[in-house]
Design a protein around this nucleic acid. Structure first.
Lengths: 189, 189
DNA sequence: GTCGCCATGTAAACCGTTACATGATTAG
DNA sequence: CTAATCATGTAACGGTTTACATGGCGAC
């Protein structure tokens, strides 16, 4: 949680939408930004306590009437400042490892046919993603009046555009491999 | 190194190109697949020893003549099988976290102007990437006879196509924000 | 009453990087 | 001679997930 973790800011950011419990945060991540962000309980709950200690968030509601434990957090003015500070900082560069590219890079170790299958699977997956993004985009229309709306649309469109690019690349690559003369079977040098 | 680490396969894959030392592996990663894969010494050397113990690789050369320590590893038939097995497996799904998208998602917490700047920085970065990929592509022509060649070209082209898509998206997003009426300044609800 | 979801949390394991230690060789 | 690079390795730290523990609540 010290130097490089962004969990802190992910949570602060979500709390600018509205006050939330740890459980809410988990669910909100899974149902809205899962395609580019994830957090686990083992991160969320300790971080919430930490943020509270730092006065960046406050416990806004303890369910008093009922007996059920429910802890809701709200961002403070200090928390907003901290969030803004991060948003204005330069991003750390990070290499995102791409397992499928790694496999393709080593493609000559399996047959061309199998590589084509790899690409077809990837294409299929991206088509599914694309559909999902488009349904998210549609559902976003319902909150067109939210000040967040523009930004949320843009992030989803990022997903759409990269999925489209990926699909195009898959198709091109399959064609390239199909028209590629050399070999066709494993080469065990 | 147990269940989910792909370091093992990255190393095995590189050793199908030719026998390499730990140092070679590090350098080769940095100079060829760095844009979608990374490994640190703390991973490479222990993994090499592990792979040797599992008979997936063998020490192929100890520098005998000179005094300098140099340990070169070569992949074994067993190692090739292990690599192929992995290549044929379904990929594990992994969420690659995107810090810039996270910031954009929370865009309403800073000014529109600042968000546009964010996007411009991203665009610039991707233009640099694009240039780099294109120079890699050019340098790949020199080994057009390698059985790896087709696959290496395809992976670089993946980088190119996603960088291009990203640039397009940045430009579109900037336009969207510029023509967006609502607000223009921070909203501290 | 029990099954599934709501809800909070923690411990351990795992994966990976950073930073350092060590020392040889080479270029200036 | 000294700095950079070659070369191998390890220890410590940090971030994240997994798996579990706990228990209330509602539906059937």
């Amino acid at each position: 949680m010290k130097k490089h973790s962004k969990t802190k800011f992910a949570i602060l950011g979500l709390l600018t939408i509205k006050p939330l419990s740890g459980y809410d945060i988990k669910r909100l991540i899974n149902t809205s930004i899962a395609y580019f962000w994830s957090e686990s309980n083992g991160q969320i709950y300790p971080t919430l306590n930490l943020l509270a200690k730092e006065k960046l968030i406050v416990v806004s509601t303890n369910q008093f009437a009922g007996k059920k434990l429910r802890i809701t957090y709200a961002i403070t003015a200090l928390g907003r400042l901290e969030l803004q500070k991060w948003m204005r900082e330069k991003d750390e560069k990070s290499v995102h490892r791409d397992e499928k590219l790694l496999k393709l890079f080593f493609g000559k170790n399996i047959s061309k046919k199998e590589c084509i299958q790899l690409l077809k699977n990837r294409e299929k997956k991206q088509i599914e993603n694309l559909k999902e993004y488009e349904s998210i985009l549609k559902s976003l229309q319902e909150e067109a009046d939210s000040p967040h709306h523009v930004y949320w649309v843009l992030t989803v469109k990022n997903g759409i555009s990269s999925a489209e690019a990926e699909i195009k690349w898959c198709r091109g690559s399959i064609k390239t491999l199909k028209s590629n003369k050399k070999d066709g079977n494993l080469c065990i040098r």
